[in-house]
Structures are given as structure tokens and as C-alpha cells.
Write a protein that binds this DNA or RNA. Structure first.
Length: 1031
RNA sequence: GCUCGGGUGGUGAAAUGGUAGACACGCUAGCCUUAGGAGCUAGUGAGGUAAAACUCAUGCAGGUUCAAGUCCUGUCCCGAGCACCA
């Protein structure tokens, strides 16, 4: 027999397989389907690394076995090719990113073929292919065109500027990497450093596109229950989303109204004694404010000009004036304020109509005629320091669209609440008072400790601090502290966490809503602006951080929770440390004696009654920053049109302030392709390089035909990978490239229904938070759109551990411990590489590379090769067959559960058995080759053909264990004395307990142990153990 | 600090509560030879023995059980992720 020559055999069979193409998935084939997904790689310049090999080999083994078991297997691959490294490389070498990508994918493809990964190459996708990113852009447009309201996806008209969209723009403090010149998502900043280049990042304000992933936060947690992900992957996702249920509590700021003069403007057909005005007047006066409530003239046949003249004649406005309006009173205010010669303090408007198209559609001629309904919003903004707008969610007259638009035009604070009566018509309306008062809103998960609150803390970025400016007597000191805190990066803030710092806001007091106690207000950077409300109630007795802070600044520590079991006396009057566990409420007036669990509920209920709190849910998850200021990404298909904005404002009679209307690129004009450019350098202004390409940026508005500009931001490279598993199921060659299809998802529902969901998704542990979360989010969105029929894209997710260098360190070029798969394949062959990488250790655990271990596998393959010479026309002995058939069962089980290290070990064990045989039958040898074939496809195919088989081993049926070989004649039974194994006896399979007992007692060593002893008990486990308990 | 993993020979590691260390590396001895990064045979947890028997061994301390690497309690160490999340 000739010598085993890996490279020769492997080349030969790869050629044959390429020609036959037996790895293709066939839509609707009458077989059970199996969709096996591996994470597609980013085609970097350095080629496939061993980490890729580990995942791909494991999945290939699985896929090959599933095909042999008669499944219609979809096992696709593609390229996640947008991204910075390619762009940076292109900049450095002066080449096109698309060319570089092509080169790299060619290398990757060749490497994958050299390792015999049985991908369905017909379905290969590339995220940078315009035919592909056409649909990435299409999905983005759907995000732009839809909103998520009341847990439902709704379509939003293009000219609707007020309803919140799934894709929206926000002026964001983004994490700016000065080296990459790019904005990074929070997830991409590790310890304050850029994930890609390691440079120190800082905060920079920039308008960014955001995706409202938080709207789906609850479903992203709950639907995990429908999947079979590894437990630790589920936990990581849940922790990342970080849901916490608690209470939002309002602390009123004291003595707010001392120098304030209030003007209340009542509604159409109302008067100073109507609605909530008498009650509100009382509440304001209680807090020291002066109130003027005019009875507006001709309230049933109003004329706005006449009414505002009446107010102007009877009241002198100044910088301490607060105007409060209800319904039509707001129209009076909006007409009157631009006429004022002074700047007033505050304008608060409830349920104000913007025009006469009202919800109830009742004709109101008097209203139509009362004014021209045109307002100078810019002038109003100029003349008022602070504006708040309140809309009633259940208003039967004024729709929320009115109040929303007013709030937007005035850049005002905006609240949507439910009135006691619709249109806020009740005689007591707590929401109205709340808008008027200054509140600090806090979030807590421990409402049961509210009585122990001894101060309130604001984060340095909290906007209320500026509102209190004039009441804070030490404002300079406060301002200094805030500036210092802002200068600190996130990193420094956390690094310096050993010592908490803060400044008290002198002159400001907050009122604890549960007991009306006054507490101090502090600003401190241990409170984060990004979580909850950016403010907390501090309970030093029962929170470590508050405790530390209170100790340092000598603030009162008030104990309100004691241990359930008082005798334990763990709580030490707050002397040593905070008691943060649950317990029983004390010092909490009528709540005393309640457990923490009960207390949280009862306190929240009470606050709700007072209108000063309600249960809330908070998430750590933030919305997804979706803009990148770079070239090599999908262009965001939106257009800014100034002309459209002018036209719309003219219609509304609103002055133009240079704003733009956003116009989506029409879907039939997708893809919006990247222009060819000379220079890919990002700009210093933070704009994408696309901004410099006039030809591309300047565009005719698809709506009005006027001059308009394109959005120049591109998408992050998480975008294309968020739906690629759908693309595979759609079949690249036939569907995605078909330009006639207006909606590839909907039009190919049948294919998607057949293949989805992905049965097994295999990838790296590093992607189980971000990529997995993002793509699940996109999928749910697609589900809500009706494009896909299944809620969760991935039924099962597994992840492989990383492979370390032979020195036990992470592989890196600088350490010089990188293993190049090409070299291994060249020297030892693909079969050795594949088998070793599975044998290296448990699939999901990290393992260190070992050349010696690789050698061992290489030797094993030689031994298999040599054993082929034993094949003869013989009868195998029964013992061997029995063992072989047991291995069929356990090998199958191992592969199914990704226990691939023991799978390979078992292949070795079988070979060791064959070593001991003189000859082996064709049939038994064939079975062994089939078991080998997923791991060592070339070797198996070669030896299979040497058996005279005409067809490929991969179209053969996976071995089935035959029952007759699984039944043994004899069995080894361990004999235990007091739990210790003292001997082993060979018993007949059919032996009874008594017979086994007899055999055991006949054994000389056992007999010696039992001599003169009393047997108190015998435990007999059939086929396994007989255990004597003796005294 | 919190949440997951994980601590088993000289090494990588196996073990549905039921014979701890499968398989492989390494090592030792021997054989073979076309002298190689080869192959074959035997041995290899520690102690003990001529060989057995036997004793001790799964981070540490307890517990449950006829029987614990495996289950429970506490504790120490290592790794990963999150991290002032109220």
C-alpha cells in the first residue's frame, strides 16, 4: 500500500467535490430542513485565523452528519465586509476599499475551500454588494417610516414631524475617537478607549441617527424564553438590557413661588371660577405666589385681540411673570407674548389648540373667527425663559398632534398625561400643578426605604441645576464642580470611584413626598446622567454608596429597615456599614412592620394617590447610535430638503428658521450606492468623507424637485450583519440579485417560511451581546412589519471558546504566537487541522494551541491509513462489533451536542480496537469510515473509494446502530464493600441478583472482606454494581 | 462589588450520583530500521509490593448518601463579562 500523502489526496477530492457541488441546499425539498448558521467573517487582510477554523470546523462536522442523516441542510457563508480596517488600509495604500475587499474575500474563500468546509457557495452574500445593501437600506427606511406606539408598530407619514420614529435624529454626546475620527456606540468603548484602535475617547456633541431599540427591550428579554441558547448567553443578554423595576418619585422643590406673579388665562366659554382655577390659585398662594385670574371678555364669542388687550391693560408683565393657560387661553398667550417688551419667566400651556381642526369635528364658527391662527414661535421663544406644554392623552377636543407640534416649534418641555377629566376639565388637576412646580424626579428600586431618605443627589449634567441657578447661593462653587466633572472622562470617573465627591446646593430644599420632610439637594458625580432620571434619593442607611457619601459629608443616616429576624441584631445603627438587604420597615409611620416587598408596593400606591410617583421600569440599554462618519458603510438613504420645509411652514403660517425637511429616498431608487472617490480620509469636522463629494451630496428633492442634500453619514457595520441569515434563505443568485422584486422579503415568504428559523447559530462568544441583540431586534422589527413569520431568528445559539497561543497567551502578532492555518494545512493537511482543532479541548472552553497535540492527531491519521490494509473478506468477531455499534450511538450523540473533543477521542479508540484485529470486514471498516468522515472528509472519501464504492461517502446514510449488537452476553459488575470497590466480577447478562450475589461472595478477595462480618444491606444496580454494607 | 464559568496526574483533558484519570501529549524501557519531526511493543496518579493485597488521591472545611469529582453549605484561588445601573 502506498504512503499516506495528505496534500495529494486532499487536492484530488476537493476537485471532485467542487465539480459535483453536493452541498447545496434545495428550497422545499421533501426532507426535514436544517438551517445551520456560522457567523460570517470580516474579510481582513490577514486571512482566516484559527478561531474561525474552530467554529467553521465544528459546524461543518455537524452539517455533514446532518446531510448523511437525510436532512436538507442549509449551511451558507458570506462576507461582513464593510468596516474600518479595510477603509484604513485603502487610505494608507491609495486603493479602493471595494478592490481590497474583493482581494480579501478571494483569499478567505480559497482558505475555506482548502479546509473542505461544505458551504453552499451558491448562496454566498457580501454586505458591500449594492444588490445586498439595497435591502439593508430598505430596512433602514422602514425604521424611519415607522414608530412604536403603545407596543405596536405604526406607519408614520413622511411629513409628520412630531410622532416619534424608530429611526430618529438626536443631538448626542457621542464617544469620539480622535484617531479613527469616528463616533462610537457605548458598546464599542472599552474602559474609555476605542475598541478598534485603543485611543482614549472623549465626548463630543453631534447629531446622530438613532434606532429605538429600547422600544423592544422587554420583548428582547421575554422572548429569550422561546430559544435554546446556552444559559450563560441568555444571562449576558438579560444583563446587558438591564431591566429593573422600581418607582419614580417626585420631590417638590420648596419655596419656589416667593417672588413669582402668576397670570391664569382660562378657556373658551370658561371664567375665573371655572375648571381647576380656584383650586390652582389656592395651591399657588400656599407656596407664596401672587395670582391674577382675569375674566376674559366675551368668552362665548371670543376675539383674541380683544382678550389680550384686556390682559395687557390690567396687568404689568415682568421677568417674574408666570403665564398659565388652559385651552383657548393658550392662543391668547401665543398672540400676546410676542408683543411684550419684556422677557417673562415661564409659560405653561394645557391642551392648547393650534388650529380649528379638532378631534370632535364640531363646527365652531366663533372659534374660526376669533383669530387668524398664525403664530410667531421664534418671538415667543425669545420672550420666555422657560416653556412647558401639557397635552391630555385622552382629550376629546384637542388632539395630541396639536400640543406636540407646539412643543416642537417652541422647543419646549413636553408632557403627555391623563387628566382627571378629559381636556383637563376637572376642578382638581394634579398634573397641571406638577408642570407648574419644580420637581426632582428620582428612580428607586427601594421605595420601602423612602422614609430613610436624608438627601437628594443630582448628576452634574442634570438640567434642573440651571433652573435653580438663582436660588443656589453657592452657585459658583457648584458650577466649578460641574465643570470639573465634565472634564473627567468616563474612565476617570470610574477609576476615581474610591472617593466620592459632591457639592451641596445651598438654598435649595426638596420635599420628601411621603412625609413632607425637607431634605438637602446635592450634586455629585457618583450619580449617572444616563440611567434612570439622572437623580437619586439617597438613603445612607440602606445603600452602600449613599452611606459612604453621607459618612464623608456628615449627613444624617436614618435607619428604616431592620432584619426580619431582630434577634440576629445584624443592623448596627448604621455604625459600620449600610444594610442593603430586604427586611422589615421601621421609623416609617403607618408603614412600620411591613416587609420590604410589601412596603415597596404600599409606598408606591400611596405616592400614586398623591400624584407624586408611580411604578416604572428602567433599562440599562440605550438607543442604538446608528450614524458613522465614514465612507466604507451603507449610505443612509435620506435627503434633507430646505425647500420642502419652507413650503410647509408657509402653509402653517410659520416663519422659517433654516430647518430642513427629511425626505426618504424613494424605495424604487434603492440602492443608494457609494460614489467613487479619490480620498477616503474622514474630515476634521467629524463629517463623513462623502460630505466632500458635491456630485453625490447635491441632489434634486424627490418630493418637490428643489435643491436638496443627501445625508452623508453611513451605517455601522452591525447593520449588514443584522439580517444576513434572512438573505441566505432568500438565495443570493436567484432572489437578491433580481432587480424586479419590490420587496424580497414579502414576495419570498414561502422560502423564508421553509427555512426559518435558523436551527443552530454558531459563533464567537464576543458577539453574543451586541450582534446577537441587534439582529434579534431587527428580526422582531421585520416580524412586526409582517416580513417574517417567526418571532425569534435563532432557535439555538452556541459559542466556541478562544484558542490561545502555545504560550497560553492570546494570539497576537506582537507576541509572535499566531498560528497560521495555511501553514498547518500545507504541512499536515486539512484533515489533521480539522481533527486537531476539535480534539484540542471542550468546544466552548478556551484552549491553548499545542504543536505536539497536532502531531498526535497526525500520527493517528497515519494509523487509520495503515489499518485500511486489514480490510478483507472476513467475519468480524462479535465483541468488536458490539463495541463498534455502541460507538455509533455515542459518536452521534457527541456530534449532536458539540462534544467534538470526545468525538475525535472515540475515533481514536475505535482505531485502537482495529489495531488489535488481524483483519476487518469491508462492512465494519465502511461504518468506521462513515463515522470518521465529518472530521476527516478527504481521508474518509479516499479510503471509501478504495473499498470500491462508486458514490461519495457523503451521499451514504449515516450509520445506525443495530440492536442485536447493543445487547451484551456478559457484563462486568463492580463489587463494593461499604461503598469502596473491592472487585469486579463477570456475570451473565441474564443473571439474577442472587446469582450475582453468589458470584461476588465466591470471589476470594470479596470473601475475605465479608469474613466474620454481618451484612446489613445489599444494594444491587443491574449491570453495574452490587454493594455490600457490612458492620 | 455583581453575574456567569472553572479548580482532577508532569501536560491538554475524560467521567447519566455507581470501577476517577478514557483519549492524546510527554516520559521510561525494549524492538525495528532505508537514522526520521519515523514506526512498533510494554509501562506510566502518589505511596507500597517480587507481584498482589492494601493506603492515599478530583483547591480547602463540613454535610447528605450504601456510594460524591458529580448534590448541599461555607471558604479560598483562577478566568470571562458587567461594573457607582440607585
Amino acid at each position: 500500500m502506498e504512503k499516506y500523502n495528505a496534500s495529494e489526496i486532499e487536492k484530488k477530492w476537493q476537485g471532485v467535490w467542487n465539480k459535483n457541488g453536493g452541498d447545496k441546499a434545495v428550497d422545499f425539498l421533501d426532507k426535514p430542513k436544517h438551517y445551520h448558521l456560522v457567523e460570517f467573517p470580516y474579510p481582513s487582510g490577514s486571512g482566516l485565523h484559527v478561531g474561525h477554523c474552530m467554529g467553521y470546523t465544528a459546524s461543518d462536522v455537524y452539517a455533514r452528519m446532518m446531510r448523511m442523516r437525510g436532512y436538507n441542510v442549509l449551511f451558507p457563508i458570506g462576507w461582513d465586509a464593510f468596516g474600518l480596517p479595510t477603509e484604513n488600509y485603502a487610505i494608507k495604500t491609495g486603493r479602493k476599499p471595494s478592490e481590497v475587499t474583493k482581494e480579501n474575500t478571494d483569499i478567505f474563500r480559497k482558505q475555506m475551500k482548502s479546509l473542505a468546509y461544505s458551504f453552499d457557495w451558491d448562496r454566498e452574500v457580501n454586505t458591500t454588494d449594492p444588490d445586498y445593501y439595497k435591502w439593508t437600506q430598505w430596512i433602514f427606511l422602514q425604521f424611519y417610516k415607522h414608530g412604536y406606539i403603545d407596543n405596536k408598530l405604526v406607519e408614520i407619514a413622511d411629513d409628520d414631524t412630531t410622532t416619534p420614529r424608530m429611526a430618529y435624529q438626536a443631538e448626542m454626546a457621542i464617544n469620539w475617537c480622535p484617531d479613527c475620527k469616528i463616533g462610537l456606540a457605548n458598546e464599542e468603548v472599552i474602559d474609555g478607549k476605542c475598541e478598534r484602535c485603543g485611543a482614549q475617547t472623549y465626548k463630543k456633541m453631534q447629531k446622530q441617527w438613532m434606532l429605538r431599540i429600547t422600544a423592544y427591550a422587554d420583548r428582547l428579554i421575554n422572548d429569550l424564553a422561546k430559544t435554546d441558547y446556552l444559559e450563560k448567553i441568555k444571562t449576558q443578554q438579560i444583563n446587558w438590557i438591564g431591566k429593573s423595576e422600581g418607582t419614580q418619585i417626585n420631590f417638590e422643590i420648596k419655596n419656589d413661588f416667593k417672588d413669582k406673579n402668576f397670570v391664569f388665562l382660562h378657556a373658551y366659554g370658561d371664567n375665573s371660577q371655572g375648571s381647576f382655577w380656584p383650586w390652582l390659585k389656592l395651591e399657588v398662594e400656599k407656596r407664596g405666589g401672587k395670582v391674577y385670574v382675569p375674566d376674559l371678555p366675551n368668552t362665548d364669542e371670543p376675539n383674541i385681540q380683544e382678550q389680550m388687550n384686556f390682559v395687557l391693560d390690567n396687568y404689568k408683565f415682568d421677568e417674574n411673570t408666570v403665564v398659565v393657560t388652559h385651552s383657548l387661553g393658550g392662543v391668547v398667550a401665543m398672540k400676546m407674548i410676542p408683543e411684550l417688551k419684556v422677557k417673562i419667566d415661564k409659560l405653561v400651556m394645557m391642551a392648547t389648540p393650534l388650529h380649528t381642526d379638532l378631534k370632535d369635528k364640531m363646527p365652531r364658527p366663533a372659534l374660526d373667527a376669533c383669530t387668524d391662527w398664525k403664530f410667531d414661535f421664534e418671538k415667543i421663544k425669545e420672550n420666555v425663559r422657560d416653556i412647558a406644554i401639557l397635552g391630555d392623552i385622552e382629550d376629546h377636543i384637542v388632539p395630541l398632534s396639536h400640543t406636540r407640534e407646539i412643543a416642537e416649534k417652541l422647543s419646549a418641555k413636553y408632557f403627555e398625561k391623563i387628566g382627571q377629566m378629559t381636556h383637563f376639565n376637572n376642578d382638581i388637576e394634579p398634573e397641571v400643578l406638577k408642570v407648574l412646580l419644580d420637581y426632582i424626579q428620582v428612580f428607586t428600586t427601594r421605595a420601602d426605604t423612602l422614609f430613610g431618605c436624608t438627601y437628594v443627589v443630582l448628576s452634574p449634567e442634570h438640567e434642573a441645576i440651571n433652573n435653580f441657578q438663582f436660588s443656589i447661593s453657592n452657585f459658583q462653587e457648584v458650577e466649578e464642580y460641574i465643570n470639573q466633572a465634565k472634564k473627567k472622562s468616563d474612565l476617570e470617573r470610574t477609576e476615581l470611584q474610591k472617593e466620592k465627591t459632591g457639592v451641596k446646593l445651598d438654598g435649595v430644599k426638596a420635599i420628601n413626598p411621603i412625609n413632607s420632610e425637607e431634605v438637602d439637594v446635592w450634586v455629585a458625580d457618583y450619580v449617572l446622567v444616563g440611567y434612570g432620571t439622572g437623580a437619586v434619593m439617597a438613603v445612607p442607611a440602606h445603600d452602600e454608596r449613599d452611606f459612604e457619601f453621607a459618612k464623608k459629608y456628615g449627613i444624617e443616616i436614618k435607619e428604616v429597615i431592620t432584619t426580619k429576624n431582630k434577634e440576629l441584631g445584624i443592623m448596627n445603627n448604621g455604625e459600620s456599614r449600610a444594610y442593603t438587604d430586604y427586611g422589615v420597615m421601621i421609623n416609617s409611620s403607618s408603614f412600620d412592620g411591613l416587609t420590604s416587598e410589601e412596603g415597596k408596593k404600599k409606598v408606591t400606591e400611596k405616592l400614586k394617590k398623591l400624584g407624586l410617583g408611580e411604578e416604572t421600569v428602567n433599562f440599562k440599554l440605550r438607543d442604538w447610535v446608528f450614524s458613522r462618519q465614514h465612507y466604507w458603510g451603507e449610505p443612509i438613504p435620506l435627503i434633507f430638503c430646505n425647500n420642502c420645509a419652507k413650503n410647509k411652514n408657509k402653509e402653517l403660517g410659520i416663519m422659517n428658521n433654516g430647518e430642513n425637511t427629511i425626505v426618504p429616498v424613494p424605495e424604487d431608487q434603492l440602492p443608494l450606492t457609494l460614489p467613487d472617490v479619490e480620498n477616503y480620509e474622514p474630515t476634521d469636522t467629524g463629517e463623513s468623507p462623502l460630505a466632500g463629494i458635491a456630485d453625490w451630496v447635491e441632489v434634486k428633492c424627490p418630493k418637490c424637485g428643489g435643491k436638496a442634500r443627501r445625508e452623508t453619514d453611513t451605517m455601522p457595520n452591525w447593520a449588514g450583519s443584522s439580517w444576513y441569515y434572512i438573505a441566505y434563505a432568500l438565495n443570493q443568485k436567484e432572489k437578491i440579485k433580481d432587480k424586479k422584486q419590490a420587496n424580497i422579503f414579502y414576495e419570498n415568504k414561502k422560502e423564508l417560511d421553509y427555512w426559518m428559523p435558523v436551527d443552530i447559530y454558531n459563533g464567537g462568544m464576543e458577539h453574543v451581546t451586541l450582534h446577537l441583540l441587534y439582529s434579534r431586534f431587527w428580526h422582531k422589527f421585520m416580524y412586526d412589519l409582517g416580513e417574517v413569520a417567526i418571532i425569534e431568528p435563532y432557535q439555538k445559539r452556541i459559542a466556541h471558546g478562544i484558542i490561545l497561543g502555545s504560550d497560553g497567551q492570546k494570539m497576537s502578532k506582537s507576541e509572535g504566537n499566531v498560528v497560521n492555518p495555511d501553514e498547518i494545512v500545507e504541512k499536515y493537511g486539512a484533515d489533521t487541522m480539522r481533527s486537531y482543532i476539535m480534539f484540542i479541548g471542550p468546544y466552548d472552553q478556551e484552549s491553548a494551541w499545542s504543536m505536539a497535540g497536532l502531531q498526535g492527531v497526525y500520527r493517528f491519521i497515519h494509523r487509520v491509513w495503515n489499518n485500511a490494509g486489514k480490510v478483507a473478506d472476513v467475519q468480524d468477531n462479535k465483541e468488536f462489533l458490539s463495541k463498534l455499534h455502541k460507538y455509533i450511538v455515542s459518536v452521534t450523540d457527541d456530534i449532536e451536542n458539540f462534544r467534538l473533543n470526545t468525538y475525535v477521542a472515540k475515533l481514536m479508540e475505535i482505531n485502537n480496537l482495529i489495531d488489535k484485529l488481524d483483519k476487518i470486514s469491508k462492512e465494519a471498516w465502511g461504518l468506521y469510515l462513515q463515522l470518521l468522515s465529518p472530521a476527516m472528509p478527504h481521508l474518509a472519501e479516499e479510503l471509501w473509494s478504495k473499498l470500491g464504492q462508486a458514490e461519495s461517502i457523503f451521499v451514504s446514510n449515516w450509520p445506525k446502530a443495530e440492536d442485536r449488537y447493543l445487547v451484551d452476553e456478559f457484563v462486568n459488575v463492580a463489587v463494593q464493600i461499604n461503598g469502596k470497590v473491592r472487585g469486579i466480577i463477570k456475570a451473565d447478562m441474564t443473571a439474577s441478583e442472587d446469582e450475582v450475589k453468589g458470584l461476588a461472595q465466591a470471589d476470594p478477595i470479596i470473601a475475605k472482606w465479608l469474613e466474620d462480618k454481618k451484612i446489613t444491606k445489599i444494594i444491587y444496580i443491574k449491570d453495574k454494581i452490587i454493594s455490600f454494607v457490612i458492620q
